[in-house]
Design a protein around this nucleic acid. Structure first.
Length: 190
DNA sequence: TCAGTGATTAGG
DNA sequence: CTAATCACTGAG
């Protein structure tokens, strides 16, 4: 009989081995940042308490030349947040119901972000924001001004696979096949 | 497979 | 102003 493994989807407090990740983490290119996100933890502290989930999947949306990116038609009232400095939050309502969380990467003036697409225990970009209580109230704010939202790493290594993005049938073929979705199937075992 | 639900965008 | 679209989800 093997040792029983305890599974926890929602962490109600930071774990002993967690180290905070500074908003400066997002200064680089999304292509170097995104593969490091699966395995990290996203936490939200509200009146209800502290809740964190482990990220399992992210996607890159990068540049006006990426036909899947909301900045593909240049600066608009909606896409302008993507041009802000790295660490800015881009949260938008999809299908009138689902709050999708992105974090802006790279230099101010270049529209690029990572979408948090899934966490263990909340598979889907709309589900994880619902589970954590993240809404468009944070849209346009910078992470350093939202202390209730934090990113953590446990210092462990999580194997990551790159795959094409999901839900972008409207995009050009070259953008649809781009391996800009990063997933890990390795989950923290307590 | 398909409807729900509302913000965003292009176009007249 | 109108109408189409949508980085989704859950029910049938």
């Amino acid at each position: 009989m093997t040792k029983p493994k305890t599974k926890t989807d929602v962490f109600t407090k930071p774990q002993a081995d967690w180290i905070e990740v500074s908003p400066e983490f997002f200064r680089g290119r999304a292509e170097e940042i995104a593969p490091q996100l699966p395995g990290m933890y996203l936490s939200h502290e509200t009146a209800e308490g502290f809740r964190a989930l482990q990220i399992s999947e992210v996607e890159i949306y990068s540049g006006e030349s990426d036909s899947a990116c909301h900045a593909s038609r240049g600066r608009t009232p909606r896409s302008s947040v993507l041009y802000e400095r790295s660490g800015t939050l881009y949260v938008y309502l999809c299908y009138g119901m689902h709050h999708l969380l992105n974090i802006v990467t790279f230099e101010e003036g270049f529209p690029e972000a990572v979408l948090i697409r899934a966490c263990f225990g909340a598979e889907g970009p709309g589900k994880l924001t619902k589970a954590l209580g993240i809404t468009t109230a944070y849209h346009g704010l910078h992470l350093e001004n939202v202390p209730e939202l934090r990113l953590w790493t446990d210092g462990r290594t999580y194997p990551v696979t790159a795959l094409p993005r999901i839900g972008i049938d409207y995009a050009r073929e070259e953008d649809r096949i781009r391996p800009w979705r990063f997933i890990t199937t390795r989950r923290r075992e307590i």
